[in-house]
Simulated assay, not measured.
Amino acid sequence: MATKIAAGETGEGNEALQTVAPKAPVTYERPISTQGLGIPKPHVPRALIAADADHPNGTPGYNHNGYSVMQQHVAFFDRNGDGIIYPWETYVGFRAIGFGVFISFLGMVIINGAFSYATLESWIPSLMFPIYIKNIHKAKHGSDSEVYDTEGRFVPEKFEELFSKFAKHDKNKLYFDELYALTSANKNAVDPFGWTAEKLEWGITYLLLKDQGGFVSKEQIRGMYDGSLFETIAKQREQSMLHKKKA
């Protein structure tokens, strides 16, 4: 039996604006907000900033250096600033944000091993496994959230969808089960590489950011997308270690 769609819930009774279909239960399970997002043209991909309703101009004081948002996401791991991320830089970056030796080594192997070739300037593989930041958009895999578009820009509308669809307990937080549901929902057909990459990426994100309550906040996730969060965590850890040495 078709489920009745409540007026006002999905476009004020206007069939053209309804976001759920009576015979598609998944559209009820993953609702889309019909309210304004509080920022102009949220459907327009932002090249330089990760914008949401609370940060229409992106992260305050964050220097994007002319990088796209996807480039900003990985630039933290370019430890010498030459535009190329080598495996040892990935390892050092992971250590800088608090991961142990094993996870850092695993991250280095998986990330540079899987994404280096797609970003190379040549068809010939490099045994150094470099990742070229200028070409990081070529390493965008399938079965993802689509918050980054194919050129590496940030799509505010897609970012907000993560929470309207999957944040069942709190609209500004995602718990482990919700993140797991997110990665499962994003699966494209016949894309085992994308499925695996999505699970690993969000799994690492959860391990890095989860609070004592077992959730990851919306602001943390936004900061992860533009890379500003990595810099914040690294600076906090540096200050904490200096404080311990002086104590």
Rank of each mutant, 00 (worst) to 15 (best):
V92E: 14
G61V: 07
N80I: 15
K187A: 10
E121C: 08
P45L: 02
Y132K: 11
P45D: 07
K158Y: 07
H43L: 07
V147A: 08
Y225M: 13
K138G: 01
Y225S: 03
D177P: 09
E151L: 01
Q239G: 08
W195H: 15
R46S: 07
S116A: 09
L182G: 01
Y132D: 07
S184F: 06
S126D: 04
E89N: 05
L200G: 09
D211M: 06
K235R: 14
L207A: 03
S122R: 09
Q220C: 10
M128V: 14
A234T: 05
D211V: 03
F166D: 04
A21Q: 15
K134L: 00
P25I: 02
A2F: 09
D82S: 06
E121N: 09
K165F: 14
N135V: 00
A51G: 15
I39F: 02
I110M: 10
E9T: 11
D170C: 11
H64E: 09
H137A: 06
E157T: 01
L209W: 11
R79C: 03
E29D: 13
F215T: 05
I131L: 14
A189S: 14
V190T: 08
V155I: 15
I131T: 10
Q72L: 04
A16Y: 11
T3M: 05
V147K: 03
V101S: 13
D211Y: 05
H137G: 02
Y148S: 05
K23F: 14
P56E: 06
A96T: 07
G227R: 01
K171P: 15
Q212L: 12
S68I: 01
V20P: 02
E15T: 13
A181W: 04
L120F: 00
Q18C: 12
K235Y: 10
G81V: 02
I84W: 09
S33D: 15
E151C: 02
I103M: 09
G8L: 03
L127Q: 08
S164G: 12
D144A: 11
Q212A: 12
E198T: 05
I32T: 10
Y117E: 15
P45E: 14
W195V: 00
I131K: 04
I84T: 11
D226G: 01
D54I: 03
N112K: 04
K245N: 12
K171S: 11
P56R: 01
H243P: 01
K218L: 03
K4S: 07
K168T: 14
V26G: 14
G113W: 05
I233W: 11
Y91R: 11
V109I: 13
H243A: 13
P22R: 14
G214W: 02
I103T: 08
K171D: 09
N135T: 02
N186D: 14
K245F: 13
P22E: 08
V190M: 06
D78I: 00
Y86C: 03
M70K: 08
I97M: 10
V216G: 02
T3C: 06
